[in-house]
Amino acid sequence: MPLADHDIEALLNAANRVILGKERQIRLALACLLARGHLLIEDIPGVGKTTLAHVLARLLGLDFQRIQFTSDLLPADILGVSVFDRESGAFRFHPGPVFAQLVLADEVNRATPKAQSALLEAMEERQVTTEGRTRPLPEPFFVIATQNPAHQIGTFPLPESQLDRFLMRIELGYPDRTAERELLAGADRRELVAQLSPCLPPPALLAMQRQVANVHAAPALLDYVQALAEHTRQSADFVAGLSPRAALGLLAAARAWALLEGRDHALPEDIQAVLPSVIGHRLLAPAGPGNGNLARRLIEAVALP
């Protein structure tokens, strides 16, 4: 089996040494990347969102750009701009920060919807069109956006249609007691990040992405995905059901998860593992309990076919 097991293990171990006590989130982030999806990290400031993006960029050897979203950010600040060049006597395009393999869009909900949509369209199309010219974005292309909880002051919450462009949304949460102690006692995180060396070079990453698409999904598994989607569409527990794009995303994420588990076929357990992150930002409960609960309720309401 051509699974790069040791590379994956090494990568995860290295990441876990820098970001303490967040094994599951790191694994999900990697699965998201392998499934060629974009990641949204939602949490309060200071729990390591940016650090996680840095760590992934370093470990995967991807060239990295960070865009700090602010309320006065303009689309050109993201995509790039054409400037008149005196020497050649012509306009020359200066690519924006989005032309990188891993883009960190920090605090994406601080910018105006106009700036947000410039990024999100680039994410969806994997290319940028400015001044009548279309320029492809590099391969692999991976966006990690961080978002502050919507109730914080000065935010423009992303609408559902744009949330749907992110394959997963994860929350980091506070570290537990031992992890926090280690963090406090340990070295500076920024130095640790700087010391990291790539474990999985871009060609290997691309190969693994192709391998994800080959992970077997049996008819019984597809039945299960359909049953889950059907339930969200029929049940009164959800305001609106899962879209076919969401179902596709669920399957892709489950395949990536299975690959990370070292299997060549996906199991219902893989679906269940990625389900909270994949559907959390796509489904709305009519009112009340949190989204984590919603995913749990969905899993427990649908029998394995």
Binding site: L267, P268, E269, Q272, E300, A301, A303, L304
Partner: peptide, 9 residues
């Protein structure tokens, strides 16, 4: 087995 429980779990 719970009705939603996968074989590995």
């Amino acid at each position: 087995r719970a009705m939603w429980e996968g074989p590995a779990d």
